[in-house]
Amino acid sequence: MRTTRRGALILLGAGVVASGARAQDRTVVDSAGRTITLPPRITKVFVAGPPASVLTYALARDAMVGWVRAPSPAEKEFLAPPARDLPEAGRLTGRGDTASLERVVGLKPDLILDFGSVSETYRSLADRVQSQTNIPYVLIDGRFDATVASIRLAADILGRKERGEALAQYAVTTLALVDRVVGKVPQDKRPQVYLARGPEGLETGGRGSINTEIIERVGAVNVAEGLNGRGGIFAASLEQILKWNPDTIITLDRGFHAAVQSKAGWSDVRAVAQKRVYLSPGLPWGWIDAPPSVNRLIGLRWLLAQFYPAEAGIDLPADTRAFYDLFYGVTLSDAQVARLLGGAPAR
């Protein structure tokens, strides 16, 4: 593809560089309804953000060209080579990006993939980058409700239909299990949960926020009312937590988990008194959120096992091994499983 340019002036009015369509090219429609022309085989994918990097790693890690943020040694232990050793390539959000567009073009990816919001902002960002770099830019709906469909769509776009079907089936089975177990538990037996973040446990995600989505998906009540589904993490006070009086606490912080029993004031919280404070595993990615991607599917099973051990009857070590094998391509040793379920420490 060659284009002639006359003078820098043209640059000011330059629009889309004409793309030379080839006979074997196929067109796909992404979650934002944008029609995109793709080469027949996708061998190089640039991931635009953290959720997309998890999805792409699970579906087509051989096609990844880099990470948004290079994995740490502790994370690498739970990721497969050679993808885990790919370099950091930065984040692409259209403004204040850490990814260098010139480098993106230089990497010559067949596709830029983003998994998350498909709002007008992200749709126009995708259009801009696509017209600027002449690289197809695909948006996949990142809402948790859309997980199964999004895995299938991404797999189709990446040309990994079979693999996508296996992952989608896993998601279908897991969601069915969730519905079955939750259906067995009467409304009043479901836990009142507080998500404790930060070393003091005083940061939480509001009800309906993306941070607590899967806690609510397993039938639990998020005690932090929040902002009617708007916003994300906010600061809570111990006084407020005592008033909410959750019977269960999920925490992402190892230090908080270890210290909560002896923390002043916390012993009056029902969950602490009843020793129902659970440390969520977090490697290579979080099980509750961080990032909000397919990594949360194993989080659903883990939550079922904590909240409804009798009804769920889940063999957590076996399920963990299966998920890591299927999604991340790593075979876990017993010691690794034990460390994960004990809230694997960051090294």
Binding site: P50, G94, S117, T121, Y122, R230, G231, I233, P291
Partner: peptide
């Protein structure tokens, strides 16, 4: 008020 994963980074 912003969505922490899609709007806040932007």
């Amino acid at each position: 008020l912003a969505d922490p994963y899609n709007q806040l980074p932007a």
